Amino acid sequence: MASLSKKWARIISRVASQIYFLLIIFQVPLFRFPCRIGMCETPVEVTSSQLIASEVLPTVVVKIILSPGAIAKAIAKKTSIPTYNDLLSTGKFINMGKGPSTIDLKHMEVLAGSYFSLAGAFLGLIRSGRMSLFGVMLIILGIAREVNFGKHAPNDPSKEVCMYRSMYIAVLSAFFSIRGDVRKLIRSSKVKHIIHQLRHSKAKRK
């Protein structure tokens, strides 16, 4: 039973990690939250805008991160695929301010969560870990705090802070990418099934 649970945990974890990676790298909209470029909808947008402003990494690295999502959006909208030089202009990154920003300081949960989500997406393809789940939970915490206590503009749809339904898929895939937790769930379900069968057989004997 132990070897079987390991096998299924490995398969489920691998598939979940791949789903999570695709959600993040292809920039499937997960939320709507204020950032340096206006309103960000993905961890990649939040992370890229901060990386460009802080100039921690070369622009070429940021363009590589942005390119899969830009291509996916162009295909989905049936528009021309942006060139390498147009990647930043299509994402509204050109006129963005440099250096520290009050937006980053006020919304540290979403910023840190976006970093963890992006890093976890790549690391999850190599080995199982909790970084992805920790990242999405930080983002959810930041969005919930902004909705409950922040000054957002619910009457303006373009500036509304919210989470999309796709965030549930991100949370589930991040959770099931943790191989150890998946294995515990499989073991627990098997034990419950065995107990149920034993009770059922005893009831028949009576």
Rank of each mutant, 00 (worst) to 15 (best):
S3M: 05
S3E: 07
S3H: 05
L4C: 13
K6M: 15
A9W: 04
A9V: 13
I12G: 09
V15P: 00
F21V: 03
I24F: 08
I24P: 00
I25L: 07
F26H: 05
F26Y: 03
Q27G: 01
P29T: 01
L30W: 02
R36P: 01
I37H: 10
G38Q: 04
T42L: 12
T42W: 07
P43W: 12
V44K: 06
V44T: 10
S48D: 10
S49W: 05
L51T: 02
A53F: 04
V56M: 03
T59N: 06
K63C: 00
A70C: 11
A72M: 13
K73N: 08
A74W: 14
K77Q: 07
K77R: 05
I81F: 04
T83L: 13
Y84Q: 03
N85G: 07
L88C: 01
L88G: 02
S89H: 09
G91N: 12
I94F: 10
N95Y: 07
G97E: 14
G97Q: 13
P100H: 11
P100N: 10
D104I: 08
D104T: 14
K106Y: 09
H107P: 00
M108E: 08
E109M: 15
V110F: 08
G113K: 08
F116V: 01
A119F: 15
A121L: 09
F122C: 03
G124K: 05
G129S: 03
R130S: 13
M131V: 06
L133G: 03
L138V: 03
L138I: 03
L141W: 06
L141Q: 04
L141T: 14
L141Y: 11
R145T: 10
V147R: 15
N148E: 02
H152K: 14
A153P: 00
A153M: 15
N155K: 13
N155Q: 15
D156V: 04
P157H: 11
V161Y: 03
Y164V: 01
R165C: 00
S166Q: 11
I169Y: 11
I169W: 14
S173Q: 02
S177L: 06
G180E: 10
V182A: 07
V182I: 06
R183I: 15
R183Y: 12
K184P: 00
L185N: 03
L185H: 10
L185A: 14
S189N: 09
V191M: 08
I195N: 10
R199L: 12
S201D: 13
K204Q: 12
